[in-house]
Simulated assay, not measured.
Amino acid sequence: MIETFDNYKIALLRREDGEAFFNLIENNRVRLEDFFAGTVSKTMTLEATLNYCEDIQKRIADTSYLPYMITDLNTQQFVGLVDVKNIDMNVPKAELGSFIDSRYEGKGIVTKATKHVMDHIVKEYKFIKLLCRANSRNKGSIAVILKNGFELEGTIRKDYRTTKGEIVDLNYYGRVFD
C-alpha cells in the first residue's frame, strides 16, 4: 500500500529505510520511550536499527507486524508511524499504535494517516476488530483514537511496563467493522 494525502505518503517500512527510521526514533526518543518501549529498545544504535528492520521484513512477510511509515513529501523524511501489531487472524483483529515527530504534532497528520491505514487493512486483511491502547495521560493519542471512531471499552489496571520500569494502567479502545 502506498497512499498519499495532503503532502504526505504512507507506505510499509522497507529494508532500505533503516537509517531514516533510526533518525525518526532518535529525534523523538525521549518522548517515545515510555509508550513505544519495544521499538525504542531495538533502535538504540543505527546498527541495531538496521538489524531490527531486517527482522521487521520477515514479520511483514508473515503478516505478524505491519509498520506504515508517514513521509513528508516535501522533505522525503519520515515524520511518523502507524503500526499494526498483535495481529490475530483467527478473529481477525489487530492493535494499532501511532506516533508523530514532535515538529509535526497537532496538525492532524497522524489522525488522517491512521484513517488511511485502517481503511486499507480492513479491506485488505478483512479485520473485523481493531483496538488501541493508551495511558490516560497520553491526550494526543486519545484524541487520534476518538477521532477515528474508537470507543472506550475499559481500563486494564497494571497492564504495561514503561521503559523506566513504571507499571501503568491502559485504556482499551475498540472499533468493530462489518
Rank of each mutant, 00 (worst) to 15 (best):
L131E: 09
N135P: 03
K139P: 01
A143R: 15
V117Q: 01
L131C: 08
S136Y: 14
I145T: 10
Y125C: 02
F150Q: 06
I128A: 01
E151R: 12
H116S: 03
A143N: 12
K129I: 02
G154M: 12
K139Q: 13
I145H: 08
E153D: 15
H116R: 08
L131W: 04
N148P: 12
F150A: 01
V117D: 03
G149R: 10
F127W: 07
C132I: 11
E124F: 04
S141E: 12
L152N: 06
I128L: 06
L130D: 02
S136C: 07
F127T: 08
A134S: 15
V144C: 00
L146P: 05
L146M: 12
C132T: 07
G154H: 11
F127R: 00
V122W: 07
N135H: 15
S136T: 12
H116C: 08
C132H: 10
L152R: 08
I145D: 09
R137T: 15
N138S: 11
I145K: 03
M118A: 05
K147N: 15
S141A: 15
Y125K: 07
L130S: 01
K147Q: 11
I121Y: 04
V117F: 03
G140R: 10
R137F: 05
E153G: 12
K129R: 13
D119I: 00
N135V: 00
E124N: 06
K147D: 05
C132W: 13
K123D: 12
